[in-house]
Design a protein around this nucleic acid. Structure first.
Length: 247
DNA sequence: AGCATTGTTTCACA
DNA sequence: TTGTGAAACAATGC
């Protein structure tokens, strides 16, 4: 289910493994650990301790004490399991500590990732932190449909398919509006609603908790005006919106 | 059977 | 060259 709120929860979970010595690493899944060879992440991490847990958008990383950095991504279905009692077939990557504890990246679909020293240079600023000026510049540029731009993690990071629909609904903006046609007032309003949607989702436990998300289905009704929601495809993703109040 | 899926990356094309 | 959009990726569920 991972979007920014789920990634933040994973980051908070990972904070609890800091300071413990790494004595085991399972990096045998060559797809999740690509482009590393099996054993490569293990060799780099063994003996070290994680010193801090970070996140930007949906990208997570753990810094070690003067050692390498371990980057993690939850993909489409991944989550972090703390001190797993036993490792199953959906645990794609795991770390064990000297005190007997550990964590696993549990991910059915296998689109999650574990990577050494990944660069965040190209990733856009966090959707909850981005400043007004920078948001105008990065989101207002070009002429893509606004929803496609929101999903572009190089523009801003953390907004996924659900959060995008929710935020656009809150901002009363149609998802197929082209970015070139958005006014400064509309861009500012959208930024405000993204931040509200993100904060609310974190507080309530996930991107799926939004009021509009509940109506994201064939017979869904707009919570604002009762109009049936429309379904279309934007940015390669199924998109729901209210043609009555989103203009 | 066929299509969809809350993710990112890669490739083709204008 | 740059920006945009579709396909690919893996596995599962309806």
């Amino acid at each position: 289910m991972p979007e920014l709120p789920e990634a933040e929860r994973a980051r908070a979970t990972l904070e609890r493994v800091l300071g413990r010595q790494i004595v085991a690493v399972d990096d045998r899944d060559t797809y999740v650990c690509r482009p590393h060879q099996p054993g490569e992440i293990a060799a780099a991490l063994l003996g070290h301790r994680f010193a801090s847990a970070h996140r930007r958008g949906k990208f997570l990383w753990l810094e070690t004490d003067e050692g390498p950095t371990l980057a993690l991504h939850l993909g489409m279905t991944g989550h972090i399991v703390l001190d797993p009692s036993d490792l199953g077939r959906w645990d794609r990557f795991s770390v064990g500590f000297s005190d007997g504890g550990g964590f696993a990246l549990r991910d059915k679909r296998r689109l999650g990732r574990a990577r050494l020293n990944a660069s965040l240079e190209l990733v856009g600023p966090d959707a909850a932190d981005v400043g007004r000026e920078e948001f105008r510049r990065r989101i207002g540029a070009g002429n893509a449909p606004i929803k496609a731009r929101l999903l572009d993690q190089l523009a801003i990071s953390g907004v996924g398919n659900l959060l995008a629909d929710q935020a656009l609904w809150q901002a009363r903006l149609a998802p197929d509006r082209r970015t070139a046609g958005l006014s400064v007032e509309e861009l500012d309003r959208l930024r405000r609603e993204i931040r509200r949607a993100v904060r609310s989702a974190i507080a309530r436990g996930g991107a799926h908790t939004g009021a509009f998300i509940a109506e994201r289905r064939a017979d869904g009704i707009c919570p604002r005006d009762g109009h049936p929601v429309s379904r279309t495809r934007i940015g390669g993703r199924t998109t729901f919106w209210c043609p009555e109040c989103q203009v």
